[in-house]
Amino acid sequence: MSLLTFIKKDTPVHRLNPLTKMFMIGILWIVAFVSANMIVMLAVLVFNIIIWFIGKIPFSNLKILLGVVAIVGILMIVIQGFFWHPTGEYTTLFSLLGKDFLLEGALFGLTLAVKLLAIASAIPILVMTTPVSPFMAALAALKLPFKFIFVFGTAMRLVPLVQEVFDEIREAQRLRGHNITRMNLWKKITKGYLPLFIPLLLSLLRKTNDMDIAIESRAFGAPVKRSYLEDVSLKGRDYLTMIVVFAFGAGLMWLSSYMGWGAGVTGWMAPAVVP
């Protein structure tokens, strides 16, 4: 879960306005979505990694991300290798059960995996460097209705809350000698989970009920124009960042149109993903 939780640090990335970071991710996503040019996508990926570095986002998270993408990537390469429909020339690498595995298909799968990685690695730039409250204020600045923003904010909070309650319960049951890690699967199912999940369910029900009272008691939904504590006005560094990111995005788009949206340098990309 640490992939999505804010980590408090003082870096230039943390200091950026959430709107700027949203803009940044927006541009990077557009480029990564629209272009399937391998060089362009790798450029987006490298850009993300540089921002990770500046924002001191722990690279251990990149490993998790890589792990996930690797699994999906291999699946894509295998599936595309076997089922990709050639539109022009193609190269058969080998055959299995009468089905050809095509190099072009495998490369297409690889492209999708890189695309996925480029898109996914942009998310922590916003989420891991921005506390929830400025994030919510930024969404409000985009004129989204507050009820929507609140649901979003609460959802962000829900994961750690459930985790917290669950940890407390697990601690309490460990104190009563309940050691689920030492049980085999059958025992876990029949005996292990019950003492953890029943209190969890009951606690969460009670907590959400209390939370409902607390939220309403603190004037949620009052018929006045809501104000925000967080200052989401843009500073010089925000404008500068936006200009740089925009120029970078525009440059990559130009590069794509110059080198080919899907073709790349190796010329193996089919126009399938060209908009």
Binding site: P131, S133, R157, K207, M211, A222, V224, Y228, L229, E230
Partner: peptide
């Protein structure tokens, strides 16, 4: 049960913002 934001400051601000 009545604390639901991500930090102390925004917790205190919540009601004032709503008003």
């Amino acid at each position: 049960a009545q604390l639901f934001t991500s930090d102390v400051r925004s917790e205190v601000a919540f009601a004032a913002e709503n008003l």
